[in-house]
């Protein structure tokens, strides 16, 4: 087991709270952070090239923002843009990195979507092999 902390970041308040907690944990454990931006392409409705490009731009911007925050906090950070379901992406990377914790924001950002499809923290409980820390946005 490494002292790697995995977190997801999408620029939202919940994501910011999770990122801050991940940085604190990494500092305490002398570990590093892997931050993920995951996006699941929509397969219905035909071609989606421009939309995917626009989302990739958002992902790149958000991950660059996380990298700046890490620099300011003095935390070692690695960023990854992944295609696929967020919970699945976090769990897969956590397994690959033998992560210590997964830190995610409480799903206050998209309550209705979470209600219909299940929230990322909830699904992570079934998928993750390591402890999952859920941080609510303040």
């Amino acid at each position: 087991m490494s002292n790697t902390i995995i977190t997801g970041y999408d620029g939202s308040d919940g994501g910011k709270a999770a990122l801050a907690e991940a940085f604190r944990l990494a500092a305490d454990l002398d570990g590093n952070v892997v931050v993920i931006f995951a996006y699941e392409k929509v397969v219905v409705g035909g071609e989606s090239h421009d939309l995917d490009e626009a989302v990739e731009a958002i992902g790149a911007r958000v991950l660059a923002e996380a990298a700046e925050l890490a620099l300011a906090a003095g935390v070692r950070l690695q960023t990854e843009y992944l295609e696929g379901d967020a919970a699945q992406a976090l769990a897969t990377v956590a397994e690959r990195e033998q992560a210590r914790y997964i830190v995610v924001g409480g799903n206050g950002e998209r309550p209705l979507k979470a209600w219909v499809l299940g929230s990322t923290p909830n699904r992570l409980l079934a998928l993750a092999d390591c402890p999952v820390v859920v941080v609510r946005a303040t």
């Binding site: 992902g59 991950l63 660059a64 690695q78 843009y81 992944l82 990195e97």
Partner: peptide, 20 residues
């Protein structure tokens, strides 16, 4: 900001659509 080499998919984020 980047700890590379531990992963084939390290930053910069949002690179080409090939292997992500």
């Amino acid at each position: 900001a980047t700890d590379s080499a531990s992963s084939p998919e390290q930053s910069p984020a949002g690179s080409g659509p090939g292997d992500k």
